[in-house]
Design a protein around this nucleic acid. Structure first.
Lengths: 233, 233
DNA sequence: CGCAGGGTTGATAGCCTTCAAGGTCTGTGG
DNA sequence: CCACAGACCTTGAAGGCTATCAACCCTGCG
């Protein structure tokens, strides 16, 4: 295990919040902090396997994580990408439905599930927060069902780029840096690498986005929103 | 509104449980019962709209409900089918992400969300149960992402039939009666009606299932499971 | 410098959709 | 009781979107 566990000396200020909140109104999730351990993982390291007992849950401090489901014949579905501030490993009951892997080198804060559940028992606010979190994820999952079930390749890419732009608060100088490969994006959107490339080339030609190997620049948000076929947002 | 609200005289014995449990270990959800109202709705009646404030949640007593998302150009995604015993309307925070409609004539037990949330505050067991429920739905949602993102038409149908068979406890004489139309099934699986028909015809020719207008008979479960491409179950 | 892995582009194929038409069932009204 | 209308289902033919196969490019790194 190439995990470098550091002493649990992380103060609150170092920990990205799940949702930015007023300092006066601390997040119930902060309760977990005292039981957290910080770990650093190299690129492509498996954080937990499919079907593994859900011993821990995690918060991404930096870097990017993907959740993955592999079919016997090699077909792959990327459930989601987790960015700094995101929690994962809480959406499972006994065992994880998806594996989790480091897309880039990542720093994670790791919490024992057993401890989380115990805390939730004694702190109703935490229990409430956990349910709220599950419901937020559920809504995102339903949204993705529409994407996977009914949207075209172009619509999927447009939706994906907008979602990433929305989540990626820290986009330096208007550039949306995306750490995952084209293959990862394809497996997330139910497409192939080639289709992802072609659609990105189209959007680039249209002047809708600028595309480089590791990122995008959104040149025409209105056009993207039209393409994404979403009513809200 | 063609809702016939009946006096709240339903005793526990009339209410299907979400998950069958030992009578000695009552479900925390039973707490809601005293605040429930029974309503009967005709086929195709809208139970709640997309984006509607989530005022109520529901338990299906009999019949079938679908959750639906409509895109501007008419494309439709059926989120899920709810059968007797299933709860819905709890998976939303402020507003419903999908509309809900009666597939058949349905009897519903309706509970005010406000009351549910209040009860969850004072009864930790209920809060826990609600989170458990959300996580169960979340797992199902992730499973469906694999289906929509990576499975072929045949695999989708096989998975669907097996899922329905699993959930539809009361299948009289081995016949799996499905109340929803081919169009509903298609919109649930990200396919067209025609494809659903063709694949069903194939499975029938193979001798895997028997198909009639309103139901199926599973003749070869092993074959179906192979086709479904699921490791578990 | 050469290699390996990811990215891009082109040509072809295939699965599913679209369009079209006919079939079947059900409920309704004469 | 029967005829009819309409909705749903089924099947066929053609087309399109995306996948597959293949080749080449680019970049980072040993």
């Amino acid at each position: 295990m190439q995990i470098s566990t550091q002493a649990s000396q992380v103060t609150m200020s170092h920990v990205a919040r799940v949702a930015p909140q007023r300092a006066a109104n601390p997040d119930a999730l902060d309760l977990l902090e005292q039981f957290g351990t910080t770990v650093r993982l190299v690129r492509d390291h498996e954080i937990h396997a499919e079907d593994a007992d859900a011993e821990y849950c995690y918060r991404v401090l930096s870097g990017c994580v993907r959740t993955v489901r592999l079919m016997e014949d090699g077909r792959r579905q990327v459930g989601e990408f987790l960015l700094a501030g995101d929690l994962f490993g809480l959406d499972d009951l006994g065992t994880h439905a998806f594996a989790a892997e480091a897309v880039t080198e990542v720093m994670l804060r790791r919490y024992p599930r057993r401890m989380v559940e115990a805390l939730a028992e004694s702190h109703p606010a935490l229990g409430r927060r956990l349910r709220e979190l599950a419901l937020t994820h559920l809504r995102a999952a339903y949204e993705r069902m529409v994407l996977l079930g009914r949207k075209t390749a172009t619509e999927r890419l447009a939706s994906f780029i907008l979602e990433m732009d929305r989540r990626h608060a820290a986009s330096s100088n208007g550039m949306l840096e995306l750490p995952m490969s084209r293959t990862d994006i394809a497996d997330h959107l139910g497409l192939t690498v080639e289709t992802v490339c072609r659609v990105l080339a189209l959007l680039k030609r249209d002047g809708t986005i600028y595309v480089s190997r590791s990122g995008f620049r959104l040149l025409n948000r209105a056009s993207l929103r039209d393409l994404a076929c979403e009513m809200r947002h």
